[in-house]
Structure formats: structure tokens, C-alpha cells
Amino acid sequence: MMRIAAAALHDLLVGLFRAGGSEAAEAEAVAAHLVEANLVGHDSHSAIRAPKYLAWVAAGELLPNRHATIAIDAGPLLVLDGGFGYGQVIGAEAMARAIERVRAHGLALIGIRNSGHLGRIGAWAETLAEAGLVSVHFVNTSGYGILVAPHGATERRLSANPIAAGAPGPDGPIVLDIATSATAEGKIQVARNKGEALPPGLVLDGAGRPITDPEAFYRDPPGALLPFGGHRGSGLSVFCEILAGSLTGGESSHAASPTAWRLVNNMLTLAVDPARLGDGHAFAADVARLTDWVRSARPATPGQRPLLPGEIERRTRAERLRDGIPLDPATVRQLAEAAAAHGVALPGELAETV
């Protein structure tokens, strides 16, 4: 395991995406989003994704330099089409629209369909929380990302289907960012790259048997992720399909979907201005009381108080900004191979390890 400075990793990714056909602003946006995911500890949605994005671009599955277009405009109700562009760009444009519509109407319901991979969904909840808004986000794919066995089944039918929520808090955004699957497929990639076993109870092999070997997930026939919490996660996942897929027009996960040959994310975002529901100061005071109340609980481990959603990310970010971002040898190799294929120079920290 090696560590690389965030700025050096950012510059490498910018170079890769520029070489992959992205204009400067897009390359910067995608790189910044992926590096931020590394910084906050969401390594499954970070720089590890860059080689795969570039492969999708080469295959015509992901289209550089696209922007969100309006498909439906009904005041606080808005549906945007991503045109199969980078989700980091489409998501940012959608959140900017959400803020505009909430300022005008007090709330907004924003649908995104036909977007490339939207990355770390918690980033979009953070964006709105930093603007003083409360939000919830539901995501699915339209068929390419079918990975999860419904509760009581042993074969894939659903996507990992993340849910995120955010609110302004006294110490910064309070952000929940979870998959409805027991783990994210990207975390299996991370474990595979590190040569580590998976915790039990997360994954099945192609025969429906529980496994801890990440390599077995990728064999033929492929394995399946389990939903978290049994029927609870499975039920939430079904509603991600309905809300993010069916309701936005992006379609639910299905192998026969016309966009199932490429990774397409759809997202439904509900955003609210708490000040429009009464006294904004009262809202902030009550959230502060809630955070104090939760933190005052007797800790299970002495000296380690309970954490609120988003706190571990802030702590990890500070540590990784100080000490560098950890990269396993397989991820380093994949980034080096992508750099060589695109004629991009490796930063010194990586070049010394290849």
C-alpha cells in the first residue's frame, strides 16, 4: 500500500480524462469528484473508477462533453436528461437546478435520467446541505448494473441502488450515503485489488452459495450481492427502481431495457428549504439539539462517542489530506496502464512504484 498526495492524484486523473476526450472543465469536475471520494474514504467510487470510465468512453458507452438537457419543466418538478454523459457533470448541473428551483418554490423534485455513473451520491446531498437545503436521493441503473439478488433469491435482479440524504448541521453537513445492497460492487473490486477476503454475509457465488472470496464473485456464472437487512434493503431497493427509474422515465433495472448495454444511472432528488416551513433558526437549533442528544449516549467503546452520519468522512478527509491517499498495488497498476495507453505521465509517487 502506498500513499499519494491528493493534488498529484487529481492532476493524473485530469490528464487521463483530457486524453480520453473530455474538455478541461469536464476533466476537472470528474477528477475532483473521484479524488474527493478517495479523501472521504469511499474508495469504491474514487480513482479506481477512472480506467473503467475511459474504457466505457472508448466503447461508446459513455459520451464526453455532454450536458443535462430539460426533458420536463413544471416549475418545482423538473426532469433532466443526461445524454449518457459523465455523471459527475450531469449531477452537478442537476443540483444547481435544484437549488434554483428550491429558492423559487421552497421545494423541488428533480429527476435525472440517462446519466453516466453519478459517482458518490453523498456528494450531491452534501452540495445541497451546504446550500442550506434538506434532501433525499434515490438512484438506480436501467439494466447494466444488475448485481443484487432480491431477498429470498440467489440470482441478480436489482441494482445496488444507493440512497443518500443530507441536511445542514452545526458542524457541517449531516450526510447519509448507503447502498441498499449489503456492500457496493466497487468495494468488492477494492477487496479484490488488495487481495483481501470479504466479510461474510454480503455476497453469493453463481451457484447461490455464500462466499468471502471477491474473485469468486466475478467467475462464470457471476455471483450476486445480497440486500442489506434482508427484506428491508430489498424493499428499499425496489422503491429505488420505482422512484429513480420508473418515475423519471429512465426505466427500472431490466436486462431487456434499451439502455442495458451501457451503464446508465437515474436519480430522483427531493430538496426542501427548511426556512420555508417555518423558522429556519428553529430548524437549525433543533438539529443542533438532536446532534448533542445523539452524541451524549454512553459509548459502547470507552472514549469513542457515537458518530453522526458524515462525521467519519470528515475525519478521514482530514487524515488523508495530511498523510496522503492510500492506493493498493492493483489500483496503482491499473492507473499506470491507463496512463501508458493514453500517453499521460505518472506523478513521481506512482512512477517510483511501477
Score class of each variant (00 low, 15 high):
253 S>D: 00
308 L>Q: 04
178 I>C: 04
169 G>M: 06
153 A>T: 12
182 A>S: 10
243 L>W: 02
147 L>I: 03
252 S>N: 00
336 A>F: 05
157 R>L: 14
11 D>P: 01
338 A>Q: 03
141 T>W: 02
120 R>W: 10
194 K>S: 14
144 Y>M: 03
197 A>D: 15
196 E>R: 13
88 Q>A: 09
68 A>N: 10
329 P>H: 04
215 E>H: 13
28 E>L: 08
176 L>G: 04
306 P>K: 08
223 G>F: 01
118 L>W: 02
5 A>E: 15
342 H>R: 13
331 T>Q: 12
352 E>F: 02
110 I>A: 05
353 T>D: 10
290 L>Y: 14
279 D>A: 12
135 S>Q: 05
60 G>Y: 13
275 A>Y: 01
228 F>N: 03
116 G>D: 07
76 P>Y: 06
169 G>C: 03
220 D>K: 15
335 L>Q: 06
110 I>Q: 04
204 L>S: 04
307 L>F: 08
8 A>R: 14
342 H>Y: 12
117 H>G: 11
30 V>L: 07
211 I>H: 07
177 D>F: 02
195 G>K: 11
272 V>W: 03
144 Y>H: 09
231 H>F: 14
316 T>A: 13
81 D>I: 15
325 I>G: 08
38 N>D: 06
314 R>S: 06
48 I>K: 02
127 T>F: 03
75 G>S: 05
49 R>K: 08
157 R>P: 00
87 G>K: 04
346 L>N: 05
63 L>N: 04
206 G>F: 02
204 L>V: 12
210 P>V: 15
265 N>F: 01
14 V>G: 00
354 V>G: 13
98 A>G: 06
22 S>V: 00
109 L>K: 05
12 L>C: 03
313 E>I: 03
351 A>G: 05
246 S>M: 04
65 N>V: 09
96 A>H: 09
179 A>W: 00
135 S>R: 08
259 T>A: 12
300 A>R: 14
284 A>L: 15
229 G>S: 07
282 A>D: 14
238 V>Q: 05
193 N>A: 14
250 G>F: 00
119 G>K: 09
136 V>W: 08
146 I>Y: 03
214 P>W: 10
203 V>A: 08
249 G>S: 08
196 E>L: 12
123 A>W: 01
278 G>E: 13
309 P>I: 08
155 E>T: 01
225 L>M: 12
328 D>I: 07
320 R>K: 05
265 N>G: 02
130 E>G: 15
195 G>V: 11
233 G>V: 00
53 Y>H: 14
107 L>V: 11
52 K>I: 11
223 G>P: 01
271 A>F: 01
228 F>Y: 13
237 S>A: 11
199 P>I: 10
42 H>Y: 09
324 G>M: 05
248 T>C: 06
203 V>M: 05
144 Y>S: 04
251 E>S: 07
14 V>E: 03
9 L>N: 06
150 P>K: 02
337 E>T: 09
111 G>S: 12
244 A>M: 09
140 N>W: 01
289 R>F: 15
310 G>I: 06
134 V>C: 02
44 S>R: 11
295 R>W: 03
38 N>R: 08
